[in-house]
Amino acid sequence: MIRVLLADDDSLVRGGLKALLHGESDIVVVGEVSNGRDAVVSALALRPDVVVMDIRMPVRDGVSATRELMSATPRPRVLVLTTFDLDEVVDDAISAGADGFLLKRASPEELVAGIRTVAGGDAVISSSVTRRLFEAHALRTPADRARTVRLTDREADVLRAMAEGLSNPEIARALHLSVETVKTHVKHVLTKLEVRDRTQAVVWAYRTGFAYRN
């Protein structure tokens, strides 16, 4: 059972999310809060698997709350759900350690799938955000894109599959590998890119244009 904490200052949004998730047999909402401070306190007390985190909240915003939760043991996975897809908001959320980034205009199916994805250890980023990353990488200087990373052919295949939003089991099926082998390749990719998690690896792949190379 995936235990979820909802953090949003809009009671109607929280109510809608709770009603939506109530119909899922493998998800249970263990709490709901209206600001970032309470999100941290409740996450430490309730130990949810996933915190669905808004960005703009009173008392304390979702970015700083996410950053603090990264040091929790065990730490919850954080799925940012926000109205804002501004570049700085995306950057701040990912830099803080968020495991996923979806917009509130996402479909109910996308939200439920996103919760399951981050709970399973994978990353999820809104398709509109990945398109923005694609457009943005072309505006960066050659020096920004020229960072040399020596990936093996198989590691490169795995990174591109990650950038397409595939989970480890899906990558395994696509590349005819075992899930454990995929996990090993993912670990090597994160180490070579010097990034904290697969969300940052996916962002790196888009921003450098790596995701579009054959």
Rank of each mutant, 00 (worst) to 15 (best):
M1G: 12
M1C: 00
I2W: 11
A7Y: 10
A7G: 09
D8G: 09
D8A: 10
D10R: 08
S11C: 04
S11G: 07
S11H: 08
L17W: 07
L17E: 12
K18N: 14
A19R: 15
L20K: 06
G23R: 14
E24V: 15
D26P: 10
A39K: 09
V40W: 12
V41I: 14
L46G: 02
D49F: 02
V51G: 08
V52C: 13
D54F: 02
I55T: 02
P58G: 06
P58W: 04
R60V: 07
D61F: 10
V63S: 04
S64W: 00
A65R: 09
A65P: 07
A65H: 08
A65F: 10
R67F: 06
R67I: 01
E68A: 12
L69N: 09
M70Q: 15
M70K: 10
S71T: 14
A72M: 09
T73R: 12
P76D: 09
R77S: 11
L79G: 03
V80I: 13
V80E: 07
V80K: 04
F84A: 05
D85A: 10
L86F: 07
V90A: 07
V90Y: 01
D92H: 02
A93W: 01
A93H: 04
S95C: 01
A96I: 03
G97I: 05
F101L: 06
S107D: 10
S107T: 15
A113M: 05
I115Q: 01
A123E: 01
V124N: 04
S126Q: 13
S126I: 03
S128G: 03
S128D: 14
R131T: 13
L133Y: 11
L139N: 10
R140N: 07
T141F: 02
A143L: 13
A143Y: 03
D144E: 15
R147I: 12
R147M: 04
T148W: 00
T148K: 15
T148Q: 14
L151Q: 09
T152W: 02
D153S: 12
R154D: 12
A156M: 07
A156K: 13
D157Q: 15
D157C: 08
L159G: 08
L159H: 06
L166K: 15
S167L: 12
N168V: 15
E170V: 01
L175P: 06
L177T: 08
V179G: 00
V182Y: 00
V182N: 02
K187M: 02
H188Q: 13
H188R: 13
L190G: 06
L190F: 04
L190R: 11
T191D: 14
L193K: 04
R196I: 00
R198M: 11
R198H: 01
R198S: 14
T199P: 00
A201W: 04
A205M: 05
T208I: 00
G209D: 10
Y212R: 14
